[in-house]
C-alpha cells in the first residue's frame, strides 16, 4: 500500500544540519491501523508530511500502490495525494466559511466526473457514515470538537483513498469523543484502508494493530 524505501531527510539550518530520517524503510499495508510514537523532536511530523507527499525528501523513494513518487512533478504529487491519501489533523482544519457538507465536498471538486448534485449526495452519505447527516448544514462553529473531527474524517474519505494519515486526531478531544473517533478509524481499516496515526495517546496505541517507534532517525515495530 505505502512503501518507504531508504528515506532520508536532513534540515539545513544556518550553521548546522539536523538529520531527521536516515535510510528509513518500512511497508504499510491495507486493513491495518498503525500508530507511530516517539519522543518530541524525533521526526514524527516530518515523517507523516513526507508520507503525505507534503514535504520533499533528500533520498530514497515512496511507492504508493504501484506508483513511485520519486520523479513526479508537484502537480502529479498533488493529484496522487488527492486520490490516494486522506488527512485528519489535530486541529480538525475545517474551513469555517463552509458548512459541514461543503467541507466534506471540498476534495471532490478535483474529480471532474462528479456533477454538483453527485458531490452533494456523496458528502451527505459520508456524513451519514459518521452519524452526522443531520448536522450537514451546520458551520464548524456550531459543532462540538468531536463532531468537527468526524466531519474531518468524512472529508478524508471524499475520494475513497487507500491511505488515511492522522496527525494526533484525538489531541483536542475528550475521552468520550476520542473513543468515537478511534472506533471510526478502526472501522475504516476493516474496510480495506491503511490507517496511520501519529499520537502520544496511550488509548490510540491500544486501538492500533501495529505500533511503530520512531527513534534514532529510524522506525521499528514495538512488540505487543
Amino acid at each position: 500500500m505505502l512503501k518507504l524505501e531508504n528515506i532520508c531527510k536532513t534540515y539545513h539550518m544556518k550553521e548546522k544540519e539536523v538529520k531527521v530520517l536516515d535510510n528509513l524503510t518500512y511497508e504499510f499495508k491495507e486493513n491495518q491501523v498503525y500508530c507511530i510514537i516517539g519522543k518530541s523532536g524525533a521526526g514524527k511530523t516530518t515523517l507523516i508530511e513526507i508520507m503525505g507527499l507534503l514535504l520533499s525528501f533528500d533520498a530514497g523513494n515512496i511507492i504508493i500502490g504501484e506508483k513511485s513518487v520519486k520523479d513526479l512533478s508537484d502537480n502529479e504529487l498533488a493529484d496522487l495525494r488527492n486520490k490516494e491519501i486522506g488527512f485528519v489533523f489535530q486541529s480538525f482544519y475545517l474551513n469555517p466559511l463552509m458548512k459541514a457538507y461543503e467541507n466534506v465536498m471540498l476534495p471532490m471538486y478535483l474529480d471532474k466526473s462528479l456533477t454538483k448534485e453527485a458531490r452533494i449526495k456523496k458528502s451527505y452519505e459520508l456524513l451519514e457514515l459518521v452519524g452526522l447527516r443531520k448536522r450537514a448544514n451546520h458551520f464548524p462553529k456550531e459543532l462540538s470538537g468531536g463532531e468537527q473531527q468526524r466531519v474531518a474524517i468524512s472529508r478524508s474519505l471524499a475520494n475513497d483513498p487507500h491511505i488515511i494519515l492522522a496527525d494526533e486526531p484525538t489531541g483536542n478531544l475528550d475521552p468520550e469523543n476520542t473513543l468515537k473517533i478511534l472506533d471510526i478509524l478502526k472501522s475504516l481499516s476493516k474496510k480495506g484502508k491503511c490507517v496511520i496515526i501519529v499520537s502520544h495517546d496511550e488509548v490510540v496505541k491500544k486501538y492500533a494493530d501495529i505500533v511503530l517507534r520512531l527513534e534514532n532517525n529510524s522506525i521499528e515495530e514495538v512488540p505487543e
Binding site: L54, D74, N75, R81, Y93, P107, Y109, L110
Partner: peptide
C-alpha cells in the same frame, strides 16, 4: 492562507 494550505493538502494545484 490557512485554508489555501488546506486546499494544497487536499490535492489542489498551486494554479488552482
Amino acid at each position: 492562507k490557512k485554508y489555501y494550505r488546506l486546499m494544497a493538502y487536499l490535492g489542489f494545484h498551486k494554479s488552482d
